[in-house]
Amino acid sequence: MHTITIVGASVAGIRSAEALRSAGYDGRLVLVGDDPHRPYDRPPLSKAFLAGDLDAEAIGLLDAEEEAGLALEMRLGVAAARLDPAGGRVVLADGGDVATDGVVVATGGRARRLPGTEGVEGVHTLRTLDDALALGAALRAGSPRVAIVGGGFIGAEVASTCRSMGLEVTVLDGLPLPLAPVLGPRIARSCVDLHAGHGTDLRPGAAVAGLATVPAREARGRRVVGVELGDGTTVPADVVVVGIGIVPNTEWLEGSGLRIANGVRTDAGMVTDLPNVVAVGDVARYGDGDAGRRHEHWTSAGEQAAVAAANLLADAGRPGATFRPSGYVWSEQYGRMLQLAGHPSAADHVDVVDGEPADGRFVARYVDGEGVTTGVFGMGNPRVFGRVRRSELGRPARAA
């Protein structure tokens, strides 16, 4: 391959560039991204960057030396409009194109919005640096009341940041126990208690019916003054943050011959139906058969990139690499590091092996019906979490 084009300039795209160079690829490497900013890390957007403790330079994914070492040809601020496999090119939204031999699809996703909220003043999502700048400015304007729709990790991190700024925060989640489908009821309860212990008003089982709005003060349109719930009540709010997941960015791939179903379908090696096209990160739905899954986490993007790069460069007929996710996920909330590794089921038995959930600092393991440790969770204790993860994950559980 003489030219490889990576479409998407977030962590999955940058890790793919690094993996390709590490695997020995020395050809032309083009990075296309619709975001006008230099590649940056997303996790700080809901935490230190949103709080104003970091600037844009501090969250860059590459310093000058690293960027020079990758020899990237960057096309930033322009979206990919179409993939033309027959012509061997990526067509860009500005009318240009990139002739290419291989493609890495790393276009991620965009924040899902509540219906009818487009253009309403005071309603925010948090996915990009510009989103974080706009939300940060709103949070600093007169101590607003904040309502967050969605009690997952993004919603929880924004709630934590807002509380650190002294703001009144209400989190609305439709589940009876937020995070329970992922973490199981016992661990999910400890995450809920963390909110309560820091003054956040978390309301589980809250069905959002719409927004309460009034005419905007300085422009035509509406501004939000509250969130209307299904029970007829309204939660007053000057700022509403919507954190209800993402929509994979796949529209530009229509007509390309790739299978699109809640993401770009790939095999277990991150290779699409076109052998010279791989997909990584939030947009990739990997796995054989009809199941497949997307794993929307920072660590997973890097793990997938290494596998995808190896398979993109592999000689025909050589056994391909297989993506085996570690399942590692982390979040920072209220001064605590929350960490999860492995692939537990919500039905697995939970053993606390260090600390106490009531104290907000503990490590627990998930154990399946065969007595095997399927996952490890830690809150506020990274050192013990790491030790338990290394010694017990995937092995028969030892006596606590």
Rank of each mutant, 00 (worst) to 15 (best):
R189P: 03
T299G: 03
V388T: 15
R265C: 14
P382T: 11
D53P: 01
I6C: 05
Y334G: 02
G281C: 05
S391A: 15
L338Y: 03
V240Q: 10
G136C: 13
R220I: 15
D193L: 13
D193T: 07
V98S: 07
A196Y: 12
E57P: 06
S16P: 07
V384R: 15
C162A: 15
L54N: 04
L167F: 12
A291P: 06
S391E: 14
L45M: 07
A196G: 12
G184Y: 00
P176Y: 06
R390I: 11
A279Q: 04
A397W: 12
T170F: 12
G150Q: 03
G210Q: 03
W330A: 03
R398E: 13
D201S: 11
G151E: 04
L258S: 06
P382R: 08
H295T: 08
T161F: 06
G317D: 03
N249D: 12
M270Y: 01
V350E: 00
T374S: 15
P236Y: 12
V367C: 13
G245R: 10
Y286A: 06
G52F: 06
S300H: 04
G136R: 09
L177M: 08
G302R: 03
S164F: 02
M74R: 10
L172R: 09
L31Q: 03
V30H: 05
A58N: 02
A314C: 06
D173P: 09
G151S: 07
H2K: 08
S46G: 06
E254A: 15
H297S: 01
G108Q: 02
D282H: 00
E251V: 09
L76M: 13
G174W: 02
E370I: 11
L253D: 04
L114V: 11
P44H: 06
N381E: 11
E67T: 08
P248S: 02
T170R: 10
V7F: 01
A23V: 01
H37S: 13
E332G: 10
I154R: 06
H195E: 12
L72E: 04
V242L: 09
A188E: 00
E356W: 07
D354L: 14
T3G: 02
L211W: 01
G108E: 01
M1R: 00
G360M: 11
A71H: 08
L129H: 07
L20N: 01
G289H: 15
Q304P: 02
E67H: 13
D359A: 14
V235P: 05
E73L: 10
T374Y: 12
A341Y: 06
M74L: 13
N311S: 00
G221E: 14
A397N: 14
L20R: 01
G13V: 03
S331M: 02
G199M: 10
Y286W: 15
